[in-house]
Amino acid sequence: MEQATTILVAESDPANLEMIARPLEEANYEVVRAASGAQALGELKHTPSRFGAAILQCQLPDMNCMALLKQIKAHPLLKVIPLIVQGERNNEQAMVEALRTGAHSYLDKPVESTLLLAVIQTAVKDYLYHRRLQEEIELRQSRLNTMQAGHFRISTLDEATDLGSLIASAYPESGMIVVGLTELLINAIEHGTLEIGYQGKSELLATGQWLEEIQRRQASTQYADRYVDVVFQRLPGEIRLNIKDQGKGFDWRPYMDIRPERIFDTHGRGIAIARQISFDELEYRGCGNEVEVANF
């Protein structure tokens, strides 16, 4: 798989552009510079798979970056690229609007280089993971586009990833479906059946103990027999998928969008990503241990 270490930087001010580009190049990223929204969009469309992330100035000469965000997110080959908006300090309204429009992160001007590199590293890591899922779908020898219904049961992260690829192959837009679907299935295992909370995962990731804790819980008598049920239905004009775990549920509402207070966290974007790029409809039910998605 091509290592997408090229970063697009759309910035109209030459001095600000170099303040962003220089630390990226010193960290061995290739930087493509764009002075306008039209130029940025043209570069991205020319070679979509080249870019691991894009940094967009909030106000470009020819368009507001929110308009550029919407155009990128509407493009079938570009919408998976993490977009990082850079705007004026303490402009919470712009930050919230950018995140709701689909930005991966929002950075205040001027940005400190250590923070910039940390955000880019997380964004590129997310992108490469999603690219890998998409490429696995493309390499499948057979597709399930004739499947009308199916009931599946999973209990491990590996099974979640495998089932995500399998079911996604039943959709016309399998490459985008697999990204959000895998996120939802992993959430159901990780936060549902194994009951690892958001803060708990943050601490486990910070100490490098996340995978060890997953394995420990799956082997314990408390969680070993738990599973996630997945029901697929192809109906006239739509495909529906229901995912239900055996956990206690959670308050899903803060995770339907990327929130400012979690903007620099290394996880917690899965549900928002599923809403933004994979499914036309996403609804959690009851206590939060069941989610239904639909594509029309």
Rank of each mutant, 00 (worst) to 15 (best):
T156L: 03
P172F: 07
I120S: 01
V124T: 01
G192M: 06
E138W: 08
T182S: 04
T114N: 05
R153T: 11
L107H: 04
F152L: 06
S113W: 15
P110T: 13
A123W: 03
R153Q: 14
S174I: 14
V124G: 01
Q121W: 06
R143T: 09
H151G: 09
A168P: 10
S113I: 09
Y127R: 04
N145I: 15
E136I: 03
R132L: 05
S165A: 09
L163H: 02
D126G: 08
N145A: 05
D158A: 15
E138Q: 07
K125P: 05
D126K: 06
S155R: 14
A170G: 08
I154H: 13
A160Y: 00
G192L: 03
L184S: 04
L157R: 07
M147Q: 15
E135D: 12
S165F: 11
E173T: 01
Q134L: 00
Q134R: 03
S142N: 06
Q148P: 12
E173C: 00
S169Q: 09
L185A: 05
D126I: 11
A168E: 01
K109Q: 13
S174F: 15
I154W: 10
E138S: 14
M147E: 10
T122A: 11
E190N: 04
Y171N: 01
G175Q: 04
L115R: 14
E159C: 06
A123Q: 06
R131D: 04
L128W: 05
Y171D: 00
L144T: 10
R153A: 05
V178T: 04
I137Q: 08
S174D: 14
A123S: 08
N187A: 10
N187G: 15
E183P: 03
S155V: 11
S165L: 08
L128N: 03
T156I: 07
D108A: 15
A123V: 05
Y127L: 00
L184N: 09
T156G: 05
L163A: 02
L115K: 12
I189Y: 07
Y129K: 00
K109L: 10
I189W: 04
Q148V: 14
M147A: 08
G175W: 04
E190L: 02
A170I: 02
A149P: 05
I120K: 00
E173N: 07
A168I: 03
N187S: 12
H151V: 13
S155Y: 08
K125Y: 15
T114V: 15
T146G: 02
M147P: 02
S169N: 02
R140K: 04
T182Y: 03
T114P: 03
K109H: 14
E183R: 02
G192Q: 01
S174Y: 14
L116F: 08
T182A: 01
H151W: 07
T161W: 01
M147N: 09
V111G: 00
E136N: 10
Q141C: 12
L144Q: 10
E136C: 02
L157V: 11
L185E: 13
M176Q: 15
L139K: 12
I189H: 02
I189E: 02
G192F: 01
V179C: 06
E112N: 09
Q134E: 05
S142K: 13
S142T: 12
D108Q: 03
L166R: 11
H191I: 13
S155E: 03
M147K: 12
T156V: 07
A149S: 13
T114A: 11
I154C: 11
S155K: 07
D108F: 15
L128S: 04
V178C: 10
P110I: 10
